[in-house]
């Protein structure tokens, strides 16, 4: 019995899913520190357009990445309805700007399929895998690739 629970725990993980335009994505819940509303960010000079700027997270300077723009999607100007998901990527804290948070979902690794071979480089680079839940398709975001300096290293 306990072995079964153990096996279950090992393969099942919890994810936070969120929406950008009409697509649904998710990240591992363990990498999410908090979720907060959109506040006006201070833009940084000479940075890629998907870096929205920096905000004050209780005294720390937190960069905000427009995840939609990063994934090559059409994004609108952020409004108060937008949400920043504060995630920990390696040693750094990074805010991800998304349209809305949907759900907390539990999936087993077995359900996650490899990313289908589509033409987009961006999808290839930032989506680790996809799975289907109640008819919705949800993509698992490769968090460690969203920061621009890591991209520079890869290039």
């Amino acid at each position: 019995m306990s072995d079964q629970i153990h096996a279950l725990n090992r393969t099942e993980r919890e994810l936070i899913s969120f929406r950008i335009s009409d697509q649904e994505f998710c990240v591992d819940i363990m990498s999410v520190r908090e979720i907060r509303g959109w506040t006006q960010a201070t833009p940084l000079p000479r940075t890629p357009s998907f870096v929205r700027g920096v905000i004050n997270l209780r005294g720390a300077v937190l960069p905000v990445i427009d995840l939609g723009s990063r994934l090559g999607l059409q994004t609108e100007r952020p409004t108060e309805r937008h949400v920043i998901i504060v995630t920990r990527i390696g040693e750094q804290m990074v805010g991800l700007l998304v349209d809305a948070v949907c759900d907390i979902i539990a999936v087993t690794d077995a359900l996650i399929q490899a990313t289908p071979d589509v033409a987009s480089d961006l999808v290839d680079r930032f989506v680790r895998g996809i799975f289907s839940l109640e008819g919705r398709m949800i993509s698992l975001v490769a968090l460690d690739r969203v920061l621009p300096d890591l991209e520079a290293e890869a290039a």
């Binding site: 940084l44 000479r46 920096v54 720390a60 300077v61 960069p63 750094q92 990074v94």
Partner: peptide, 19 residues
Amino acid sequence: IKSLEANYRQVESIAAATI
């Protein structure tokens, strides 16, 4: 003085940030 490098990286022409 708040570091930009802690969570991001060095930005050209900018020494640091503050609140």
